[in-house]
């Protein structure tokens, strides 16, 4: 690690910071994936977590996932709220006995010294009504700031996790701001360079935040979105129905992944509709339930696939 050039050091480079995390978890035996190519609200939605958390097979993975939260847009005016940000996600199944220690080592790798900083595991029971998932764990605090979520999945997509997977989610911008010592996310040094060569987070994302805030709150085409929701829901059900086969001695499913893509789609479209304020309180619950039903059906399909089933 001593060989890290200055522009890649976590305390001055956002991208260097990400690379160090990837390197760290690769060293722990994780496969390092690239972001999933769909819009989603959190890294948990990535099939590498949602689906891979199910079934008995060992699975260790880590990846960055751009996360879209249309409602959190602030037109680029809030120092730390974004409608698009990065999560770093680690999933290890079964959860290793030293997962907390590994997590603390990963903090050390990005420059958070536990002799200097107050690191705490504060109760946080995680539940995702849209995914039909829950788990117990903590929010991890560093000097009073929440920097990660740490969860032992108990149930995902309505299916009991057996064995349990441990999930870590790092809020990358927030952690990087802490490590770089900046108060405004847009001031993060993205590429670790100085002077004219320096690229900030604002250079990369400020315009996008402004444009997407406008889109999410004012212009997103709700007629189209309602239609897209309906279509995604229908397609998901259609693919699920079409995927079932009677195998030689057990039922199997051949299209869980494409079906689940439509579930992801429906969830994001719902978030956009919600941000546009066109879903009433009562309708809201019913939309969430509809997405959950899709997620559960996908989970059920997944555990009848090659990667999801026993043996």
């Amino acid at each position: 690690m001593d060989a890290i050039p200055a522009h890649m050091r976590p305390e001055r480079s956002f991208q260097g910071f990400i690379l160090i995390l990837q390197r760290f978890w690769a060293d722990q035996g994780c496969v390092i994936l690239q972001p999933y190519d769909m819009e989603m609200g959190a890294g948990t939605f990535h099939p590498a977590t949602t689906l891979r958390a199910l079934g008995p097979k060992q699975w260790n993975a880590a990846y960055v996932q751009p996360s879209r939260r249309p409602k959190d847009g602030r037109y680029g005016e809030n120092p730390n709220r974004l409608q698009h940000y990065y999560q770093f996600q680690v999933i290890m199944k079964p959860s290793p006995p030293n997962l907390q220690e590994l997590y603390l080592k990963s903090l050390a790798a990005i420059g958070i010294d536990s002799a200097l900083h107050d690191i705490r595991f504060v109760e946080d029971d995680w539940e995702s009504p849209t995914l039909g998932a829950w788990g117990l764990g903590w929010e991890c605090w560093c000097d009073g700031m929440e920097v990660s979520q740490f969860t032992y999945f108990q149930q995902v997509a309505g299916v009991e996790c057996a064995p349990v997977a441990g999930e870590l989610t790092y809020g990358l911008e927030r952690l990087a701001m802490y490590v770089q010592g900046v108060d405004r996310v847009y001031d993060l040094n993205f590429n670790g360079r100085d002077g004219a060569d320096k690229v900030t987070y604002g250079d990369v994302f400020l315009q996008a935040e402004q444009e997407y805030s406008r889109h999410n709150f004012e212009y997103a085409d709700t007629t189209m979105l309602f239609e897209q929701f309906r279509m995604a829901e229908e397609a998901c059900k259609k693919y699920l129905a079409a995927g079932w086969r009677e195998g030689s001695n057990q039922k199997e499913h051949l299209m869980a992944l494409p079906a689940y893509d439509q579930c992801i789609k429906a969830s994001h479209v719902f978030n956009l509709l919600d941000a546009r304020g066109v879903i009433s309180v009562t309708e809201r619950a019913s939309y969430i339930m509809r997405v959950r039903e899709l997620a559960k059906a996908c989970g059920e399909a997944w555990i009848h696939t090659e990667a999801g089933r026993a043996v």
Binding site: L136, G137, C161, P163
Partner: peptide, 23 residues
Amino acid sequence: PKSMRWGERSGKPGALTWVRPLH
């Protein structure tokens, strides 16, 4: 009030539950 399973053994029936992993 709420307890959980963890680790390798959580894949098998009758696994111990505790508030967080017991070491």
